[in-house]
């Protein structure tokens, strides 16, 4: 697995966390929640390929 992927996900996590704090302190809780969900979806898109590989590995290991 590419190590850059971990750093990319960590970076997105940090930025989304700071954005959440910034928005919620400005009284924009709804937008803060939307940003969090958007960040989650973005990270899920990034790691989709890796999740697919994980399932393939599990299938191979257990002979499914």
């Amino acid at each position: 697995m590419n190590i850059d992927l971990i750093f990319q996900v960590a970076g997105v996590g940090i930025v989304v966390a700071v954005l959440y704090q910034l928005l919620s302190r400005a009284g924009r809780d709804e937008q803060a929640l939307m940003v969090t969900i958007a960040g989650l979806i973005a990270v899920l898109f990034i790691i989709t390929g890796e999740i697919g590989d994980l399932f393939d590995s599990i299938k191979q290991i257990f002979g499914l």
Partner: peptide
């Protein structure tokens, strides 16, 4: 908020 969001949205887009 606008200043912070401007920088952070740019960082998020660049990271993605």
């Amino acid at each position: 908020l606008f200043r912070g969001c401007g920088i952070l949205c740019g960082a998020l887009a660049a990271l993605l």
